[in-house]
Design a protein around this nucleic acid. Sequence first.
DNA 1: TTTGTATATCGTACCAGGTTCTATACATTT
DNA 2: AAATGTATAGAACCTGGTACGATATACAAA
Lengths: 107, 107
Amino acid sequence: MNKVKTYKSDAFAAIHETMSGMYDAGVIDKKTMHRFDEACLTPVHAFTATEIKALREREEVSQSVFALYMNVSKDAVSQWERGVKKPAGPTLKLLSLVKQKGLSAIS
Amino acid sequence: MNKVKTYKSDAFAAIHETMSGMYDAGVIDKKTMHRFDEACLTPVHAFTATEIKALREREEVSQSVFALYMNVSKDAVSQWERGVKKPAGPTLKLLSLVKQKGLSAIS
DNA sequence: TTTGTATATCGTACCAGGTTCTATACATTT
DNA sequence: AAATGTATAGAACCTGGTACGATATACAAA
């Protein structure tokens, strides 16, 4: 974390570089830098079955196509929307990305 | 899939809208439209343990921070890089996104 | 009407990925 | 010397995701 990362030019990159510079300059410590990384992440909250279905229908795709984007089976999507299985971990992360940035964010 | 989606203005959106228009006009059928959706997705290939470690080090973050981005435990990242566990499904999708667009793509 | 396609539900069963816990080791920091 | 950050290691557990059918509906075309 000592070097300044080579980011694509977006808001996040700019802020991160600024923070990295502050760390390099000794203005903030590693712990703060770590907490900053946490703060930068999109919050990953749980999704209810109906929320997932609403999200998919907002994107106007079928369960099959939605499954393709998420890289899961169509059965998985069906089970999410019926409350049979509850997505977690990386799956929640993907759902959060779609909710906040749209399907194109993960295409 | 009948209506044209309200996309953010990027290349993918433009192409997708064009394709949707072609579908609405009857130029292409549903099957083609579906195959188009597949083609638009970033290919999700498997990752070896060393590839994952190299990817993380390219982004210059620790296993803990990388785990935060992926929304998994730090142990999970460690297991990936040692070949103990092999990520699949949604996890592979996230790794692919990071590889092709950088960590900022999933922040 | 009949046929075919696309979509979605339902049930079963299985596998393995991810979690949690603990312990160890090393380098850096204070 | 003590504390912290990073990474490895192994074990047991749980459940998410997969795969296989079968069923049902809606809609368009033959």
